[in-house]
Design a protein around this nucleic acid. Structure first.
Lengths: 151, 151
DNA sequence: ATATATGCAAAACGTTTGCGGCCGC
DNA sequence: GCGGCCGCAAACGTTTTGCATATAT
C-alpha cells in the first residue's frame, strides 16, 4: 500500500513518519488524485475532522513532491495543484476553458511516447531532459455539446 | 509595425489608445519578448524614466493577452510571464533547473507539428482544442557542461 | 461631454517562514 | 533525550481592487 512505501521512503531519507503526513497522502489516494491544491487538501481534512494545520499541509505536499509521491502542476489559476505520481500511467492534461474540468489524457490520447523521441533530439543538442509535460486547452465534449444546443 | 496594429485593434473593440499601452507593448518588442513578468515590465519602464503605474502595467498585459498580442506563460515560480505572440514562429520551452534560463525550441526542435496531429485525435473524441503547449525541464547545455567540469 | 483609463494605496490571494513547544525515533 | 515536526500567527511577493482624477475620443 502507498502508505507503507511512504513510511519506508521517509526512513531511508531520515525523515519521520507522522500522522499528518499519512493523512495528507491518504487524501490524494481517497480522492483519486483529483488535482487538489494545498488549500483544498487542508479543507478536505478539516471537513473530516482531522486536525492538521495549513502550514503542515503546505510543507507536506512539498515533501511528497520531493519524495516522488506527488507531481506539482499549474493550470494558470494562481494555485499549485498536485497529483499522485503513477509511473505506469503517464498522461497529459486537457483543461476545459468553459467548465474548468481537467481531463487526463492517457494511452493513445496522450502524446507522451512521441515526446520522448523529442527528448532524444534535445539530448543530441546538449540538453539533459528530466521531464516534460503537455497541456491542451479548449472545450470538452460536454461543454461543446451544450454550446451547440444553446444556439 | 506592431504599435499600429495595436491602435487598430483597440479601435475595433472600442478601447482607447494610450501612451501607457503603447509603452508596455514596446517593452516586449524591444526586449525581444524575454518572457517578462508584469513586475519586470514595470521596472523596465521606470528605469527608462517612463511613468506608468504598476496597476496599469498589470491591467495592460491582461488586455494585450485578450487582444492576442501577448501569450500568458507560467514556469512554476509564482509569477505570470508574457511573450509576444508570433503565429509564424510557434515554439515550445525548455526551462533549465540549474540556471533558470528559458529556451525557446523552434523548428525541428519543437514538437508542435506533431502535437497538432494529436489535436485531431482529440477532436475525434469530442474535444475542441484551442491551444496546447509543451514544456521540457532539465539542464541546459551550458550548465550541463559546467557540472561535468566540476566533478 | 462622456466614459474609459490611470494612479495611488489598500486589500486580497496563495504561499512561506520564525519560533516555541511537541513528539517520533 | 535529541532533533525533527507541528501549530500558530505574522510576513511575504504577486496580483487585484476601489475610488478619485485625468484624458482619449
Amino acid at each position: 500500500m502507498h502508505v507503507d512505501s511512504l513510511k519506508k521512503e521517509l526512513k531511508e531519507r531520515k525523515y519521520r513518519m507522522t500522522p499528518q503526513r499519512e493523512q495528507v497522502l491518504k487524501v490524494f489516494i481517497e480522492t483519486n488524485s483529483e488535482h487538489l491544491g494545498a488549500e483544498e487538501v487542508y479543507r478536505y481534512l478539516l471537513s473530516k475532522r482531522i486536525n492538521v494545520s495549513k502550514a503542515t499541509v503546505y510543507r507536506t505536499v512539498d515533501l511528497l513532491v520531493e519524495l516522488g509521491f506527488l507531481r506539482k502542476l499549474q493550470f494558470d489559476e494562481g494555485v499549485y495543484r498536485y497529483e499522485l505520481v503513477d509511473k505506469d500511467n503517464k498522461h497529459s492534461h486537457f483543461i476545459c476553458n468553459s467548465c474548468g474540468k481537467i481531463y487526463e489524457l492517457k494511452d493513445e490520447l496522450s502524446p507522451d511516447k512521441i515526446l520522448k523521441d523529442y527528448t532524444d533530439l534535445l539530448r543530441a543538442q546538449g540538453f539533459e531532459v528530466n521531464e516534460f509535460d503537455v497541456k491542451f486547452r479548449g472545450m470538452c465534449p460536454k461543454c461543446s455539446k451544450k454550446t451547440r444546443k444553446d444556439k
